[in-house]
Amino acid sequence: MNQLNEHERIGAFIDGELDLSDQLEMERRYEAEPQLRQQVDEARALRESVKEASYHAAPDALRQRLLAQMGRAAAPAPAAAPAPRKAGRSLGEVLGEWFAWKPMASAFAVAGAAAFFVNMSASHSFAEQQLEDDVVASHVRSTLGQHLVDVSSSDHHQVKPFLSTRLGFSPPVSELQLTGSEFLGGRVDYLDGRPVAALVYKQGPHVVNSFIWPTKAADGKPAFSQEKGFRTAHWSYGGMAHWVISDVNAEEFQTVVQAIQRGDEQR
């Protein structure tokens, strides 16, 4: 494989665009090849620095004002460019001609602002889709291999200290108070270039991975979706981001997510 193709493959790996078998092969190479690991980590760090740029949704009042200004700016015919200054004309006359361009300037400014908001929104959605792809790949990798947990214990008093000493944060850890649920333990995993806590449960015959890491996002309700045959839910609470994934049915998955939320709220 030539260098150009290798770069393309690394980019597709980071973006979650490889098929499952290739994604798992790249995961294996990532663990075994220091040079590849450095290239991937540097690319992920660059993407993370771009993603973490400040993003704020535009208030409704601002959006309405921008739309109104666009409507007003589009109505008049474009003013002619100001004529060259002639001898004997006052400065006030020249400035008046330049101010005649104000509607067009406003239109350009409004269009630029609108494009900025649209691009930021699209970028946010794309980043979330990439993160969901990472969650699915990590879940599949853990269930197909022999590395479900780093610490095998049904006691959260053993799992929490183990993870806390290996991560830069202390994740909430709890057993699920559900019929047919079993807490298997936890492991350190990586999502989107950052170390995260992975709590592993079994709900009947199904494996449930619950990924946790610090976030500055405000508390919110779970958002549910499906990706490649798996159900996912993600939300933020108490300064922690949560992503849960499994292949249980929809009703049971909601019950599992609610149980994880209850355990988090009671910690």
Rank of each mutant, 00 (worst) to 15 (best):
Ala217Tyr: 09
Glu182Pro: 05
Asp150Ile: 03
Asp150Gln: 08
Arg187Glu: 01
Glu227Asp: 12
Ser164Phe: 05
Gly239Phe: 06
Ala113Val: 13
Pro205Ala: 14
His206Ile: 04
Ala250Phe: 03
Phe183Lys: 04
Val151Glu: 12
Gly112Ile: 04
Glu182Ala: 08
Phe126Arg: 15
Trp243Ser: 14
Ser153Ala: 03
Ser246Cys: 02
Thr143Asn: 03
Val207Lys: 03
Arg194Ile: 12
Thr232Lys: 15
Ala241Leu: 09
Lys228Gly: 03
Phe117Pro: 04
Thr215His: 10
His147Val: 08
Leu191Thr: 02
Pro214Leu: 09
Tyr237Gln: 15
Ala115His: 08
Leu191Cys: 02
Val248Ala: 06
Gly168Asp: 07
Leu167Met: 04
Val244Met: 05
Gly186Tyr: 01
Val159Arg: 00
Gln177Cys: 04
Ser181Cys: 03
Ile245Ser: 04
Val188Ser: 01
Thr255Met: 13
His139Val: 11
Thr232Pro: 12
Asp133Leu: 12
Val207Gln: 04
Tyr237Phe: 12
Gly204Gln: 08
Ser153Phe: 00
Gln146Tyr: 10
Val188Tyr: 00
Thr255Cys: 06
Leu184Thr: 08
Asp219Leu: 08
Lys216Tyr: 07
His242Gln: 06
Glu182Trp: 07
Ser164Leu: 04
Ser174Glu: 01
Leu184Met: 12
Leu191Lys: 02
Ala137Gly: 09
Phe224Trp: 03
Gly112Lys: 09
Val118Tyr: 04
Pro161Gln: 06
Ser174Trp: 00
Arg166Thr: 03
Ser246Gln: 03
His242Phe: 13
Lys228Arg: 15
Val188Gln: 01
Gly180His: 00
His147Thr: 08
Leu163Glu: 02
Val140Thr: 11
Gly204Pro: 08
Ser246Tyr: 00
Pro171Thr: 13
Pro171Arg: 09
Lys202Met: 13
Phe162Val: 00
Arg187Gln: 08
Val140Arg: 14
Thr232Glu: 15
Trp235Val: 13
Asn249Lys: 14
Pro205Tyr: 07
Ser125His: 11
Leu148Tyr: 02
Thr255Asn: 11
Val196Gly: 09
Pro172Tyr: 02
Leu191Arg: 01
Val159Thr: 05
His124Pro: 05
Val256Asp: 01
Thr255Arg: 13
Ala113His: 11
Val200Phe: 01
Glu252Tyr: 05
Val159His: 01
Gln158Pro: 05
Asn119Tyr: 13
Arg194Phe: 11
Lys221Asn: 11
Thr255Leu: 15
Val207Asn: 05
Phe253Thr: 04
Trp235Pro: 09
Gln130Ser: 10
Asp134Ala: 09
Glu251Val: 07
Lys216Arg: 14
Ser170Trp: 05
Gln129His: 11
Ala250Trp: 06
Met240Ala: 13
Lys216Ser: 13
Phe117Ala: 13
Gly168Phe: 01
Trp235Arg: 10
Val188Gly: 02
Ala113Arg: 15
Gly185Pro: 10
Lys202Glu: 14
Leu199Tyr: 00
Phe169His: 06
Asp155Val: 06
Ala233His: 06
Tyr237Pro: 07
Asp134Ile: 10
Leu144Lys: 02
Lys160Arg: 13
Ser123Met: 14
Ser181Ile: 03
Phe253Ser: 04
Asn209Met: 12
Leu163Cys: 03
Phe117Cys: 06
Phe224Cys: 06
Phe162Gln: 00
